[in-house]
Design a protein around this nucleic acid. Structure first.
Lengths: 236, 236
DNA sequence: ATGTGATTTGTACTATCGTACAAAAGATCA
DNA sequence: TGATCTTTTGTACGATAGTACAAATCACAT
Protein backbone atom coordinates (compact mmCIF):
# COMPACT_ATOMS: atom_id res chain seq x y z
CA UNK A 1 0.00 0.00 0.00
CA UNK A 2 2.49 2.59 1.17
CA UNK A 3 4.96 3.67 -1.47
CA UNK A 4 8.27 4.69 -0.09
CA UNK A 5 11.37 3.08 -1.53
CA UNK A 6 13.80 4.39 1.04
CA UNK A 7 17.31 3.08 0.45
CA UNK A 8 17.20 -0.68 0.36
CA UNK A 9 13.56 -1.63 0.52
CA UNK A 10 14.41 -5.22 -0.31
CA UNK A 11 14.11 -7.33 2.79
CA UNK A 12 14.92 -4.81 5.42
CA UNK A 13 14.83 -7.30 8.23
CA UNK A 14 13.33 -10.79 8.37
CA UNK A 15 10.42 -9.17 6.53
CA UNK A 16 7.31 -9.76 8.50
CA UNK A 17 4.99 -9.10 5.62
CA UNK A 18 6.35 -12.04 3.67
CA UNK A 19 6.29 -14.31 6.69
CA UNK A 20 2.65 -13.51 7.31
CA UNK A 21 1.75 -14.16 3.68
CA UNK A 22 3.55 -17.49 3.70
CA UNK A 23 2.00 -18.59 6.97
CA UNK A 24 -1.47 -17.57 5.86
CA UNK A 25 -1.06 -19.38 2.55
CA UNK A 26 -0.03 -22.55 4.29
CA UNK A 27 -2.76 -22.44 6.93
CA UNK A 28 -5.54 -21.48 4.54
CA UNK A 29 -4.48 -24.18 2.11
CA UNK A 30 -4.62 -26.92 4.71
CA UNK A 31 -7.51 -25.85 6.94
CA UNK A 32 -9.71 -23.56 4.92
CA UNK A 33 -10.38 -19.89 5.36
CA UNK A 34 -12.76 -19.79 8.30
CA UNK A 35 -10.99 -22.43 10.33
CA UNK A 36 -7.91 -20.24 10.57
CA UNK A 37 -7.89 -17.16 12.74
CA UNK A 38 -5.80 -14.07 12.29
CA UNK A 39 -4.14 -14.95 15.57
CA UNK A 40 -3.22 -18.40 14.24
CA UNK A 41 -1.56 -16.78 11.26
CA UNK A 42 0.29 -14.24 13.34
CA UNK A 43 1.56 -16.91 15.67
CA UNK A 44 2.72 -19.13 12.82
CA UNK A 45 4.55 -16.18 11.30
CA UNK A 46 6.05 -15.14 14.62
CA UNK A 47 4.23 -11.85 14.38
CA UNK A 48 1.79 -9.85 16.42
CA UNK A 49 -1.89 -10.03 15.46
CA UNK A 50 -1.88 -6.27 15.03
CA UNK A 51 0.78 -6.62 12.36
CA UNK A 52 -1.62 -8.49 10.14
CA UNK A 53 -4.14 -5.68 10.38
CA UNK A 54 -1.42 -3.17 9.65
CA UNK A 55 -0.16 -4.84 6.50
CA UNK A 56 -3.40 -6.17 5.05
CA UNK A 57 -6.15 -4.29 6.82
CA UNK A 58 -8.59 -7.24 6.90
CA UNK A 59 -8.49 -11.02 6.72
CA UNK A 60 -10.09 -10.85 3.27
CA UNK A 61 -7.41 -8.38 2.27
CA UNK A 62 -4.78 -10.89 3.29
CA UNK A 63 -6.32 -13.59 1.11
CA UNK A 64 -6.65 -11.11 -1.74
CA UNK A 65 -2.97 -10.24 -1.52
CA UNK A 66 -2.01 -13.92 -1.59
CA UNK A 67 -3.88 -14.27 -4.87
CA UNK A 68 -2.49 -11.05 -6.26
CA UNK A 69 1.09 -12.03 -5.64
CA UNK A 70 0.73 -15.34 -7.41
CA UNK A 71 -1.55 -14.66 -10.33
CA UNK A 72 0.68 -12.45 -12.38
CA UNK A 73 3.87 -14.52 -12.42
CA UNK A 74 1.91 -17.73 -12.62
CA UNK A 75 -0.12 -16.79 -15.67
CA UNK A 76 2.98 -15.46 -17.34
CA UNK A 77 4.81 -18.72 -16.75
CA UNK A 78 1.84 -20.70 -17.92
CA UNK A 79 1.48 -18.84 -21.18
CA UNK A 80 5.19 -19.30 -21.80
CA UNK A 81 4.91 -23.03 -21.26
CA UNK A 82 1.79 -23.18 -23.38
CA UNK A 83 3.42 -21.28 -26.22
CA UNK A 84 6.36 -23.67 -26.14
CA UNK A 85 4.03 -26.68 -26.09
CA UNK A 86 2.08 -25.39 -29.07
CA UNK A 87 5.30 -25.37 -31.05
CA UNK A 88 5.52 -29.16 -30.87
CA UNK A 89 4.80 -30.37 -34.36
CA UNK A 90 3.51 -33.91 -33.91
CA UNK A 91 -0.16 -33.69 -33.01
CA UNK A 92 -0.16 -36.35 -30.30
CA UNK A 93 3.07 -35.11 -28.76
CA UNK A 94 1.66 -31.63 -28.79
CA UNK A 95 -1.43 -32.70 -26.87
CA UNK A 96 0.72 -34.28 -24.22
CA UNK A 97 2.98 -31.24 -24.08
CA UNK A 98 0.03 -28.91 -23.65
CA UNK A 99 -1.45 -31.01 -20.88
CA UNK A 100 1.92 -31.18 -19.20
CA UNK A 101 2.28 -27.42 -19.42
CA UNK A 102 -1.03 -27.14 -17.64
CA UNK A 103 -0.31 -29.73 -14.98
CA UNK A 104 3.36 -29.39 -14.09
CA UNK A 105 3.41 -25.83 -12.71
CA UNK A 106 0.71 -26.76 -10.21
CA UNK A 107 3.01 -29.22 -8.47
CA UNK A 108 6.15 -27.15 -8.06
CA UNK A 109 7.31 -26.95 -4.50
CA UNK A 110 9.20 -24.25 -2.71
CA UNK A 111 8.40 -20.59 -2.80
CA UNK A 112 8.87 -19.81 -6.47
CA UNK A 113 6.02 -17.52 -7.31
CA UNK A 114 6.27 -18.25 -11.01
CA UNK A 115 5.31 -21.87 -10.86
CA UNK A 116 2.15 -21.15 -9.00
CA UNK A 117 3.20 -23.93 -6.74
CA UNK A 118 1.53 -26.79 -4.97
CA UNK A 119 0.70 -24.68 -1.96
CA UNK A 120 -1.09 -21.97 -3.87
CA UNK A 121 -2.84 -24.49 -6.09
CA UNK A 122 -4.06 -26.34 -3.05
CA UNK A 123 -5.21 -23.05 -1.61
CA UNK A 124 -7.27 -22.44 -4.72
CA UNK A 125 -8.74 -25.92 -4.46
CA UNK A 126 -9.83 -25.36 -0.90
CA UNK A 127 -11.21 -21.88 -1.53
CA UNK A 128 -13.12 -23.23 -4.49
CA UNK A 129 -14.63 -25.98 -2.36
CA UNK A 130 -15.63 -23.51 0.31
CA UNK A 131 -17.21 -21.18 -2.22
CA UNK A 132 -15.07 -18.34 -0.91
CA UNK A 133 -16.32 -15.07 -2.34
CA UNK A 134 -12.99 -13.28 -2.58
CA UNK A 135 -11.50 -16.21 -4.43
CA UNK A 136 -14.50 -16.65 -6.68
CA UNK A 137 -14.22 -13.14 -8.05
CA UNK A 138 -10.50 -13.32 -8.68
CA UNK A 139 -10.71 -16.72 -10.32
CA UNK A 140 -13.41 -15.75 -12.79
CA UNK A 141 -11.51 -12.67 -13.91
CA UNK A 142 -7.99 -14.06 -13.82
CA UNK A 143 -7.99 -17.76 -14.51
CA UNK A 144 -10.65 -18.10 -17.15
CA UNK A 145 -8.43 -16.54 -19.80
CA UNK A 146 -5.71 -19.07 -19.12
CA UNK A 147 -8.22 -21.89 -19.06
CA UNK A 148 -9.64 -20.83 -22.39
CA UNK A 149 -6.17 -20.68 -23.88
CA UNK A 150 -5.47 -24.24 -22.79
CA UNK A 151 -8.83 -25.46 -23.94
CA UNK A 152 -8.25 -23.92 -27.35
CA UNK A 153 -4.79 -25.44 -27.56
CA UNK A 154 -6.14 -28.87 -26.72
CA UNK A 155 -8.97 -28.43 -29.18
CA UNK A 156 -6.43 -27.66 -31.89
CA UNK A 157 -4.80 -31.02 -31.27
CA UNK A 158 -8.15 -32.79 -31.29
CA UNK A 159 -10.26 -31.07 -33.95
CA UNK A 160 -12.72 -33.93 -34.21
CA UNK A 161 -13.73 -33.65 -30.54
CA UNK A 162 -16.39 -31.01 -29.86
CA UNK A 163 -15.28 -28.09 -27.75
CA UNK A 164 -17.95 -28.90 -25.19
CA UNK A 165 -16.36 -32.26 -24.52
CA UNK A 166 -12.95 -30.62 -24.20
CA UNK A 167 -14.36 -28.23 -21.63
CA UNK A 168 -15.80 -31.07 -19.57
CA UNK A 169 -12.58 -33.05 -19.71
CA UNK A 170 -10.42 -30.09 -18.83
CA UNK A 171 -12.75 -29.50 -15.91
CA UNK A 172 -12.22 -33.09 -14.82
CA UNK A 173 -8.49 -32.59 -15.19
CA UNK A 174 -8.53 -29.60 -12.88
CA UNK A 175 -10.66 -31.46 -10.37
CA UNK A 176 -8.28 -34.40 -10.41
CA UNK A 177 -5.35 -32.07 -10.03
CA UNK A 178 -6.90 -30.28 -7.10
CA UNK A 179 -7.86 -33.49 -5.38
CA UNK A 180 -4.39 -34.92 -5.80
CA UNK A 181 -2.99 -31.93 -3.95
CA UNK A 182 -5.67 -31.96 -1.28
CA UNK A 183 -5.54 -35.60 -0.22
CA UNK A 184 -2.37 -37.23 -1.51
CA UNK A 185 -2.43 -39.62 1.42
CA UNK A 186 -5.49 -41.31 0.00
CA UNK A 187 -3.44 -42.55 -2.95
CA UNK A 188 -0.84 -44.01 -0.64
CA UNK A 189 -3.53 -45.64 1.46
CA UNK A 190 -5.55 -47.17 -1.39
CA UNK A 191 -2.43 -48.45 -3.12
CA UNK A 192 -1.40 -50.03 0.18
CA UNK A 193 1.86 -48.12 0.16
CA UNK A 194 2.81 -49.07 -3.38
CA UNK A 195 2.37 -45.51 -4.60
CA UNK A 196 3.32 -42.26 -2.93
CA UNK A 197 0.58 -39.71 -3.39
CA UNK A 198 2.87 -36.96 -2.22
CA UNK A 199 5.43 -37.57 -4.94
CA UNK A 200 4.99 -34.72 -7.39
CA UNK A 201 6.74 -36.45 -10.27
CA UNK A 202 4.49 -39.51 -10.05
CA UNK A 203 1.40 -37.38 -9.72
CA UNK A 204 2.32 -35.34 -12.78
CA UNK A 205 3.09 -38.38 -14.95
CA UNK A 206 -0.02 -40.23 -13.87
CA UNK A 207 -2.22 -37.21 -14.33
CA UNK A 208 -0.78 -36.31 -17.72
CA UNK A 209 -1.13 -39.83 -19.10
CA UNK A 210 -4.64 -40.29 -17.77
CA UNK A 211 -5.74 -36.87 -19.00
CA UNK A 212 -4.30 -37.30 -22.45
CA UNK A 213 -6.21 -40.55 -22.78
CA UNK A 214 -9.36 -38.89 -21.51
CA UNK A 215 -9.04 -36.03 -24.00
CA UNK A 216 -8.51 -38.52 -26.80
CA UNK A 217 -11.69 -40.39 -25.98
CA UNK A 218 -14.23 -40.36 -28.81
CA UNK A 219 -16.72 -37.52 -28.84
CA UNK A 220 -19.77 -38.25 -26.76
CA UNK A 221 -22.28 -38.08 -29.59
CA UNK A 222 -20.33 -40.58 -31.59
CA UNK A 223 -19.45 -42.87 -28.75
CA UNK A 224 -22.81 -44.47 -28.20
CA UNK A 225 -24.27 -45.50 -31.56
CA UNK A 226 -21.46 -47.79 -32.63
CA UNK A 227 -21.61 -49.79 -29.42
CA UNK A 228 -24.61 -50.75 -27.39
CA UNK A 229 -24.77 -48.98 -24.05
CA UNK A 230 -24.50 -51.58 -21.31
CA UNK A 231 -27.56 -51.41 -19.15
CA UNK A 232 -27.19 -52.45 -15.58
CA UNK A 233 -29.86 -53.14 -13.04
CA UNK A 234 -29.56 -54.18 -9.46
CA UNK A 235 -32.00 -56.61 -7.93
CA UNK A 236 -33.41 -54.18 -5.36
CA UNK B 1 -30.01 -41.33 20.75
CA UNK B 2 -33.19 -41.70 22.73
CA UNK B 3 -35.04 -44.93 22.04
CA UNK B 4 -38.73 -44.64 22.50
CA UNK B 5 -41.02 -45.78 19.71
CA UNK B 6 -44.24 -44.36 21.06
CA UNK B 7 -47.12 -45.05 18.70
CA UNK B 8 -46.26 -43.57 15.34
CA UNK B 9 -42.70 -42.40 15.66
CA UNK B 10 -42.56 -41.83 11.94
CA UNK B 11 -42.78 -38.11 11.29
CA UNK B 12 -44.79 -37.09 14.28
CA UNK B 13 -44.92 -33.49 13.21
CA UNK B 14 -42.80 -31.60 10.73
CA UNK B 15 -39.96 -33.53 12.39
CA UNK B 16 -37.41 -31.02 13.48
CA UNK B 17 -34.57 -33.49 13.68
CA UNK B 18 -34.81 -34.24 9.97
CA UNK B 19 -35.17 -30.59 9.08
CA UNK B 20 -32.03 -29.73 11.01
CA UNK B 21 -30.09 -32.54 9.34
CA UNK B 22 -31.21 -31.45 5.90
CA UNK B 23 -30.45 -27.80 6.53
CA UNK B 24 -27.03 -28.59 7.97
CA UNK B 25 -26.21 -30.86 5.05
CA UNK B 26 -27.10 -28.17 2.56
CA UNK B 27 -25.26 -25.39 4.37
CA UNK B 28 -22.14 -27.42 5.10
CA UNK B 29 -22.03 -28.64 1.51
CA UNK B 30 -22.12 -25.15 0.06
CA UNK B 31 -20.17 -23.11 2.60
CA UNK B 32 -17.95 -25.47 4.51
CA UNK B 33 -18.07 -26.48 8.12
CA UNK B 34 -16.65 -23.49 9.92
CA UNK B 35 -18.42 -20.89 7.83
CA UNK B 36 -21.77 -22.14 9.05
CA UNK B 37 -22.91 -21.49 12.59
CA UNK B 38 -25.30 -23.56 14.61
CA UNK B 39 -27.60 -20.57 14.59
CA UNK B 40 -27.49 -20.47 10.78
CA UNK B 41 -28.54 -24.09 10.67
CA UNK B 42 -31.30 -23.63 13.19
CA UNK B 43 -32.69 -20.67 11.32
CA UNK B 44 -32.61 -22.49 7.98
CA UNK B 45 -34.45 -25.39 9.58
CA UNK B 46 -36.95 -23.15 11.32
CA UNK B 47 -35.73 -24.42 14.65
CA UNK B 48 -34.32 -23.02 17.81
CA UNK B 49 -30.54 -23.14 18.30
CA UNK B 50 -31.10 -25.12 21.49
CA UNK B 51 -32.84 -27.80 19.46
CA UNK B 52 -29.64 -28.57 17.66
CA UNK B 53 -27.83 -29.09 20.93
CA UNK B 54 -30.65 -31.27 22.16
CA UNK B 55 -30.66 -33.59 19.16
CA UNK B 56 -26.98 -33.75 18.34
CA UNK B 57 -25.19 -32.48 21.41
CA UNK B 58 -22.41 -30.72 19.47
CA UNK B 59 -21.78 -29.32 16.02
CA UNK B 60 -19.37 -32.17 15.35
CA UNK B 61 -22.06 -34.58 16.45
CA UNK B 62 -24.38 -33.10 13.88
CA UNK B 63 -21.86 -33.64 11.11
CA UNK B 64 -21.22 -37.14 12.36
CA UNK B 65 -24.90 -37.96 12.21
CA UNK B 66 -25.15 -36.67 8.65
CA UNK B 67 -22.43 -39.11 7.66
CA UNK B 68 -23.94 -41.94 9.65
CA UNK B 69 -27.31 -41.62 8.04
CA UNK B 70 -25.91 -41.74 4.55
CA UNK B 71 -23.07 -44.22 4.72
CA UNK B 72 -25.02 -47.37 5.35
CA UNK B 73 -27.67 -47.10 2.62
CA UNK B 74 -25.19 -45.61 0.22
CA UNK B 75 -22.60 -48.35 0.53
CA UNK B 76 -25.33 -50.95 0.26
CA UNK B 77 -26.63 -49.40 -2.93
CA UNK B 78 -23.15 -49.10 -4.31
CA UNK B 79 -22.26 -52.70 -3.72
CA UNK B 80 -25.51 -53.74 -5.38
CA UNK B 81 -24.71 -51.65 -8.43
CA UNK B 82 -21.16 -52.91 -8.45
CA UNK B 83 -22.26 -56.52 -8.24
CA UNK B 84 -24.63 -56.00 -11.15
CA UNK B 85 -21.92 -54.29 -13.17
CA UNK B 86 -19.48 -57.14 -12.56
CA UNK B 87 -22.00 -59.49 -14.14
CA UNK B 88 -21.58 -57.80 -17.50
CA UNK B 89 -19.72 -60.29 -19.65
CA UNK B 90 -18.00 -58.18 -22.28
CA UNK B 91 -14.82 -56.80 -20.77
CA UNK B 92 -15.07 -53.30 -22.17
CA UNK B 93 -18.76 -53.01 -21.38
CA UNK B 94 -18.05 -54.21 -17.90
CA UNK B 95 -15.46 -51.52 -17.34
CA UNK B 96 -17.94 -48.88 -18.38
CA UNK B 97 -20.64 -50.42 -16.22
CA UNK B 98 -18.40 -50.47 -13.18
CA UNK B 99 -17.38 -46.86 -13.66
CA UNK B 100 -20.99 -45.90 -14.15
CA UNK B 101 -21.95 -47.72 -10.97
CA UNK B 102 -19.36 -45.64 -9.17
CA UNK B 103 -20.31 -42.33 -10.72
CA UNK B 104 -24.06 -42.34 -11.11
CA UNK B 105 -25.14 -42.59 -7.45
CA UNK B 106 -23.12 -39.49 -6.64
CA UNK B 107 -25.33 -37.33 -8.84
CA UNK B 108 -28.78 -38.39 -7.71
CA UNK B 109 -30.90 -35.50 -6.57
CA UNK B 110 -33.65 -35.37 -4.03
CA UNK B 111 -33.48 -36.79 -0.57
CA UNK B 112 -33.08 -40.48 -1.31
CA UNK B 113 -30.57 -41.69 1.19
CA UNK B 114 -29.67 -44.72 -0.85
CA UNK B 115 -28.15 -42.91 -3.76
CA UNK B 116 -25.81 -40.94 -1.58
CA UNK B 117 -26.94 -38.00 -3.56
CA UNK B 118 -25.32 -34.95 -5.02
CA UNK B 119 -25.73 -32.98 -1.82
CA UNK B 120 -23.99 -35.50 0.40
CA UNK B 121 -21.29 -36.13 -2.17
CA UNK B 122 -20.64 -32.43 -2.40
CA UNK B 123 -20.52 -32.30 1.36
CA UNK B 124 -17.83 -34.97 1.35
CA UNK B 125 -15.90 -33.03 -1.26
CA UNK B 126 -15.94 -29.88 0.82
CA UNK B 127 -15.07 -31.64 4.07
CA UNK B 128 -12.24 -33.37 2.32
CA UNK B 129 -10.90 -30.06 1.04
CA UNK B 130 -11.10 -28.53 4.49
CA UNK B 131 -9.35 -31.48 6.07
CA UNK B 132 -12.22 -31.88 8.50
CA UNK B 133 -11.22 -34.28 11.24
CA UNK B 134 -14.62 -35.85 11.85
CA UNK B 135 -15.02 -36.54 8.16
CA UNK B 136 -11.49 -37.82 7.77
CA UNK B 137 -12.00 -40.54 10.34
CA UNK B 138 -15.30 -41.70 8.94
CA UNK B 139 -14.04 -41.72 5.38
CA UNK B 140 -11.01 -43.84 6.11
CA UNK B 141 -13.07 -46.45 7.93
CA UNK B 142 -16.18 -46.43 5.76
CA UNK B 143 -15.31 -45.49 2.21
CA UNK B 144 -12.01 -47.24 1.70
CA UNK B 145 -13.68 -50.65 1.52
CA UNK B 146 -15.99 -49.47 -1.23
CA UNK B 147 -13.12 -47.80 -3.03
CA UNK B 148 -11.07 -50.96 -2.89
CA UNK B 149 -13.96 -52.98 -4.25
CA UNK B 150 -14.29 -50.65 -7.22
CA UNK B 151 -10.57 -50.55 -7.81
CA UNK B 152 -10.46 -54.34 -7.82
CA UNK B 153 -13.40 -54.54 -10.20
CA UNK B 154 -11.73 -52.13 -12.58
CA UNK B 155 -8.47 -53.98 -12.30
CA UNK B 156 -10.26 -57.18 -13.28
CA UNK B 157 -11.37 -55.53 -16.49
CA UNK B 158 -7.88 -54.21 -17.16
CA UNK B 159 -5.48 -56.92 -16.01
CA UNK B 160 -2.57 -55.52 -17.97
CA UNK B 161 -2.67 -52.18 -16.12
CA UNK B 162 -0.81 -52.19 -12.81
CA UNK B 163 -2.94 -51.71 -9.74
CA UNK B 164 -0.98 -48.61 -8.82
CA UNK B 165 -2.08 -46.91 -12.02
CA UNK B 166 -5.68 -47.92 -11.37
CA UNK B 167 -5.48 -46.36 -7.93
CA UNK B 168 -4.17 -43.09 -9.33
CA UNK B 169 -6.81 -42.99 -12.03
CA UNK B 170 -9.63 -43.80 -9.67
CA UNK B 171 -8.34 -41.04 -7.46
CA UNK B 172 -8.50 -38.67 -10.41
CA UNK B 173 -12.00 -39.88 -11.12
CA UNK B 174 -13.14 -39.04 -7.62
CA UNK B 175 -11.47 -35.64 -7.79
CA UNK B 176 -13.18 -34.89 -11.08
CA UNK B 177 -16.48 -36.05 -9.67
CA UNK B 178 -16.12 -33.89 -6.58
CA UNK B 179 -15.11 -30.85 -8.56
CA UNK B 180 -18.03 -31.25 -10.93
CA UNK B 181 -20.38 -31.10 -8.00
CA UNK B 182 -18.58 -28.22 -6.33
CA UNK B 183 -18.36 -25.79 -9.23
CA UNK B 184 -20.71 -26.85 -12.02
CA UNK B 185 -21.03 -23.22 -13.09
CA UNK B 186 -17.43 -23.25 -14.25
CA UNK B 187 -18.33 -25.74 -16.98
CA UNK B 188 -21.15 -23.54 -18.16
CA UNK B 189 -18.90 -20.50 -18.13
CA UNK B 190 -15.95 -22.04 -19.96
CA UNK B 191 -18.18 -23.62 -22.58
CA UNK B 192 -19.77 -20.20 -23.09
CA UNK B 193 -23.19 -21.61 -22.30
CA UNK B 194 -22.95 -24.55 -24.67
CA UNK B 195 -22.85 -27.03 -21.81
CA UNK B 196 -24.79 -27.05 -18.58
CA UNK B 197 -22.52 -28.03 -15.74
CA UNK B 198 -25.51 -28.53 -13.47
CA UNK B 199 -27.07 -31.17 -15.68
CA UNK B 200 -26.51 -34.46 -13.90
CA UNK B 201 -27.05 -36.63 -16.97
CA UNK B 202 -24.44 -34.76 -19.00
CA UNK B 203 -22.00 -34.78 -16.14
CA UNK B 204 -22.38 -38.52 -15.68
CA UNK B 205 -21.97 -39.34 -19.36
CA UNK B 206 -19.00 -37.05 -19.79
CA UNK B 207 -17.34 -38.32 -16.64
CA UNK B 208 -17.93 -41.98 -17.46
CA UNK B 209 -16.59 -41.69 -21.00
CA UNK B 210 -13.55 -39.67 -19.97
CA UNK B 211 -12.79 -41.99 -17.06
CA UNK B 212 -13.13 -45.16 -19.09
CA UNK B 213 -10.66 -43.77 -21.58
CA UNK B 214 -8.32 -42.76 -18.77
CA UNK B 215 -8.46 -46.22 -17.22
CA UNK B 216 -7.74 -47.77 -20.58
CA UNK B 217 -4.63 -45.70 -21.07
CA UNK B 218 -1.46 -47.77 -21.36
CA UNK B 219 0.40 -48.53 -18.17
CA UNK B 220 2.83 -45.82 -17.23
CA UNK B 221 5.94 -47.98 -17.37
CA UNK B 222 5.10 -49.09 -20.88
CA UNK B 223 3.89 -45.76 -22.12
CA UNK B 224 7.22 -44.05 -22.47
CA UNK B 225 9.65 -46.44 -24.18
CA UNK B 226 7.64 -46.93 -27.35
CA UNK B 227 7.27 -43.22 -27.96
CA UNK B 228 9.75 -40.47 -27.29
CA UNK B 229 8.68 -38.20 -24.49
CA UNK B 230 8.18 -34.72 -25.91
CA UNK B 231 10.47 -32.30 -24.12
CA UNK B 232 9.34 -28.75 -23.89
CA UNK B 233 11.30 -25.72 -22.85
CA UNK B 234 10.25 -22.14 -22.57
CA UNK B 235 12.59 -19.35 -23.49
CA UNK B 236 12.75 -17.80 -20.02
C1' DA C 1 -58.07 -34.68 32.44
C1' DT C 2 -53.94 -35.48 34.03
C1' DG C 3 -49.36 -37.07 34.58
C1' DT C 4 -45.10 -38.14 32.13
C1' DG C 5 -41.57 -38.13 29.20
C1' DA C 6 -39.97 -36.01 24.81
C1' DT C 7 -39.17 -31.81 22.68
C1' DT C 8 -38.78 -26.86 22.05
C1' DT C 9 -37.82 -22.35 23.68
C1' DG C 10 -35.32 -18.59 25.61
C1' DT C 11 -31.50 -17.06 27.62
C1' DA C 12 -27.01 -16.83 29.49
C1' DC C 13 -22.15 -18.04 29.90
C1' DT C 14 -17.57 -18.22 28.35
C1' DA C 15 -14.34 -18.23 24.59
C1' DT C 16 -12.76 -16.50 20.62
C1' DC C 17 -13.39 -13.94 16.58
C1' DG C 18 -11.96 -9.70 13.43
C1' DT C 19 -10.55 -5.32 13.95
C1' DA C 20 -9.17 -0.73 15.92
C1' DC C 21 -5.94 2.17 18.05
C1' DA C 22 -2.57 4.28 21.01
C1' DA C 23 1.96 3.66 22.49
C1' DA C 24 6.60 1.69 21.85
C1' DA C 25 10.32 0.55 18.91
C1' DG C 26 13.03 0.83 14.88
C1' DA C 27 14.89 2.94 10.89
C1' DT C 28 16.39 6.92 7.90
C1' DC C 29 18.30 11.28 6.76
C1' DA C 30 19.12 16.30 7.79
C1' DT D 1 21.29 14.11 17.67
C1' DG D 2 16.79 14.96 16.69
C1' DA D 3 12.85 14.80 13.47
C1' DT D 4 10.06 11.92 10.83
C1' DC D 5 8.35 8.00 8.97
C1' DT D 6 7.43 2.96 9.12
C1' DT D 7 6.67 -1.03 11.63
C1' DT D 8 5.63 -3.68 15.75
C1' DT D 9 3.45 -4.28 20.11
C1' DG D 10 -0.12 -4.57 23.49
C1' DT D 11 -4.54 -4.16 24.64
C1' DA D 12 -9.36 -3.49 24.21
C1' DC D 13 -13.97 -3.54 22.14
C1' DG D 14 -18.06 -5.28 20.14
C1' DA D 15 -19.83 -9.27 17.71
C1' DT D 16 -20.51 -13.84 17.37
C1' DA D 17 -19.20 -18.50 18.23
C1' DG D 18 -20.51 -23.22 20.63
C1' DT D 19 -22.76 -24.93 24.29
C1' DA D 20 -25.44 -25.43 28.72
C1' DC D 21 -29.64 -25.33 31.18
C1' DA D 22 -34.02 -24.17 33.29
C1' DA D 23 -38.57 -23.22 31.98
C1' DA D 24 -42.29 -23.78 28.80
C1' DT D 25 -44.70 -26.65 25.63
C1' DC D 26 -46.18 -30.64 23.36
C1' DA D 27 -47.83 -35.64 22.54
C1' DC D 28 -49.84 -39.33 24.26
C1' DA D 29 -51.13 -43.32 27.52
C1' DT D 30 -53.86 -43.88 31.23
Amino acid sequence: MVRKPTSKETARKPNMREAILAAAEELFATNGFNAVSVRDIAQAAGANPGSVTYHFKTKDGLLLEIYRRHCGPMNLRRSELLAAAKRVRDLQDRLEAVVRAYVAPAFTSGSDLAGGGARFTRLRAVMSAEGNEVARKIIAQTFDDTSHAFIDAIHDSLPHVPRTDIVWRSHFLLGALYYSLVTPDRVSRLSRGEADGSDAASAIEQLVQASVAAFQAPALDQAAPARRRPVVSSKT
